[in-house]
């Protein structure tokens, strides 16, 4: 058996971009003693001065000052695309884990049931809930509403959303997923990727779409080639996340293309992963992406 032993070495970071506009604060730091400002997230008013409560970057919008921590649980916004896992079937609702501070709810009334949009939801449907989605199923959905305590209410009233079949779920910090117009991509290598705003990324092989609203799941075996492509993409996503690079279709595709010269299992080694991330970043900068 081949054994690979390496000495411990500090994991290198990519060369930091110099940006002098960033103001860093740590908990308890006084941001300003001027009382003319409004208190935003991550701050507290104490003894007539605005203090930070988290370690992160100060953001100012007119009179509103807030501090954004660099790593935190997902806080939802209406319209976000989300990948989540069903953890509980309740009365007329599913509880979904979306890596937020509280579990999200998916009401029975906000899903598209098989058999047409304008069907009334009967008690029959309530009894059949576990047939549609059961505990452990992964779904994609959109945030419909954010309730006062921060609970997210989801909907899947579009053919884009619904139950996800076979694939790989990659959790990354939510702040690394770049907000774009579309979060569903079919990459040229034959893998579909869903970049959930909540930091859950779903990789799945492209198969012919069935028009059942996503409740019928194709469980036929996935070819070895497809699985290898998915494993490679997963490792690329993790390599980018490790280097704190933003994730979107272009960055992932560039990392994938740079990784082709390695075997996909070699990408798990930290030095190879950081090399790929670095090459991808160079290409992004060269092409004029930020």
């Amino acid at each position: 058996m081949e054994v690979d032993i390496r000495l411990p070495a500090p994991r290198g970071r990519l060369a930091a971009k110099e940006d002098d506009e960033i103001t860093l604060v740590t908990p308890g730091d006084v941001i300003t003693s001027d009382t003319g400002f409004m208190r935003g997230h991550g701050t507290v008013m104490e003894d007539d001065s605005l203090k930070s409560t988290v370690a992160g970057v100060v953001e100012r919008v007119n009179k509103l000052i807030s501090v954004r921590p660099l790593k935190a649980r997902y806080t939802g916004e209406i319209g976000d695309v989300i990948v989540g896992r069903v953890i509980e079937v309740g009365s007329r609702r599913w509880k979904v884990d979306v890596h937020a501070k509280l579990d999200a709810v998916l009401m029975l009334s906000s899903v598209n049931l098989p058999g047409g949009e304008l069907r009334r939801r009967s008690e029959e449907d309530e009894r059949m809930m576990r047939k549609y989605l059961q505990e452990g199923d992964v779904i994609s959905a959109e945030v419909q509403n954010v309730m006062s305590d921060g609970t997210l209410s989801l909907h899947t009233r579009s053919l884009k959303y619904g139950k996800l079949g076979q694939g790989v779920l990659v959790p990354v910090p939510p702040s690394l997923v770049k907000r774009r117009k579309t979060h569903f991509h079919t990459l040229p290598c034959g893998v579909k990727i869903i970049l959930g705003n909540n930091g859950y990324i779903w990789l799945t092989p492209t198969v012919t779409e069935s028009n059942t609203g996503g409740y019928e799941v194709d469980l036929s075996p996935v070819s070895r080639g497809d699985r290898e492509e998915m494993a490679r993409l997963r490792n690329c996503v993790l390599a980018l996340a490790e280097q704190k690079m933003l994730l979107y279709d272009t960055s992932i595709m560039y990392a994938y293309e740079e990784s082709l010269k390695f075997e996909s299992k070699v990408l798990l080694k930290s030095e190879v992963a950081s090399e790929i991330a670095e090459l991808a970043q160079q290409r992004l900068e060269h092409e004029g992406y930020k």
Binding site: R13, E21, I22, L24, G56, V57, L70, L176, M245, L246
Partner: peptide, 17 residues
């Protein structure tokens, strides 16, 4: 903490919002 946060902030930059 400042070292750690500074390192990450520089990598993410101001555009992660």
């Amino acid at each position: 903490v400042r070292d750690h946060v500074g390192e990450t902030a520089a990598a993410i930059g101001g555009d992660a919002a």
